[in-house]
Amino acid sequence: MNPPSNPPPAPKLDPHEDHELHDVMQIHTAILRREKAEPQEGLEPMPIWLAALFGALLLWGGYYLGRYNGGFKALVFDEKSSGLPIMAAKPPGSVDMVVLGKRTYTAMCAPCHQETGLGLPGQFPPLAGSDWVNTAGHARLVRIVLNGLTGPMEVNGQPFNNSMPPWRDSITDEQVAAVLTYVRQSWGNKAPGVPIDDVKVIRDKTKERANQPWTADLLKATPESE
């Protein structure tokens, strides 16, 4: 590009720099004079092979999105899954009572009754093979878990005299049912499971006892099935 035939006039500058105006003007003029015009755009058309490439890319994108979308389900983490098994799975809330029971047992019961359910001779009564556990009804067991048990008692003919704390305020009906189901069906025990609704009924029925523990005699007076 040729330099313009007329030199540009003095650029407007900061008033503070009046004393330098002459030199500055010279320098800036030189810089601006060799500067090319402000940029603009040409109108060349898009090459056809580029359109073809982009078409192929979009095609691939559609295929990939269609193939690996996991059914657009929030809980599908494997892109190769269609997402259908997740929809067929059991609804949330239905838990395996034995699994929940074992977890509850380990946290709340095992310190005394032991993981083996054998208890400690002379201190904590056994649950495995216990004549209190392997019963047709479960009303007394639910009461023991809710309110605890204190004073002398006999298990499988062995005497015990200790205290079990109440769990009424610490665990839910579901956990009580689960832990009793677990206890009644582990270590060779073969008694039926405990439904959550039964726990609820007994919890309401024994509300006035608050956290006062049972004694063995009081429990013996309660029918097994109420």
Partner: peptide
């Protein structure tokens, strides 16, 4: 697409100088 002042006129250079300042 063509800037209206796309020439090398002195006025335009003066404007550029003003902008730079």
């Amino acid at each position: 697409l063509t800037p209206s002042d796309n020439d090398s006129s002195p006025e335009r250079k003066a404007l550029l100088a003003e902008i730079d300042a």
